[in-house]
Amino acid sequence: MNIFRLIGDLSHLASIFILLHKIQTTRSCRGISFKTQALYVTVFATRYLDLIFGEFVSVYNVIMKLFFLGSSCYILYLMKMKYKPTNDPSIDTFRLEYLLGPCTVLALIFNFSFTPVEILWSFSIFLEAVAILPQLFMLQRTGEAEAITTHYLAALGAYRALYIPNWIYRYYTEGSWDPIAVLAGLVQTGLYLDFFYIYVTKVLQGQKFELPA
């Protein structure tokens, strides 16, 4: 554990609390892509199989993994059951097969060993890299977002961005790096660059998040 990873993980935790706070206080999941949230459940469910089939790492590791699994399922429940009328599927139109197909193929080619757990682990890494796309696509379509939604996205993007200095640090202290996680993590962070730019130049200056026409 190093400071970059710890802050990254805390940022990930914060993003989920911000999202829950947004849904509970506004009693609405307007502006949130159900498809992206469903992809995160898929990501956690396929990656954290190591809780059952892998070796024990640490109490921190187990608690965090259980939290991400539980909270992501709870968000789906809020969107599909409790606040269903506020969820508008007609603007959440990204085609999931464009993400699931390529990630499946990549996972079958690039993995640490050709076993179900490792293939699913690779799949989860590739899928996480692109899971935000339905959300960003929705943002693009509506052209604007509530401030709280942008705080959620910023915290979520910061999480993987902070994993990059963590990997650099680990490379120098441990002498190894994980090409699958690192390359996917770079792509994942890259997808946020446009968003980060508008977030910093507009939302943090107190302006509304609006995409240029």
Partner: peptide, 10 residues
């Protein structure tokens, strides 16, 4: 890196 090692990250 062995297959098990990358499971320590989230």
């Amino acid at each position: 890196q062995t297959p098990a090692e990358h499971h320590d990250e989230l």
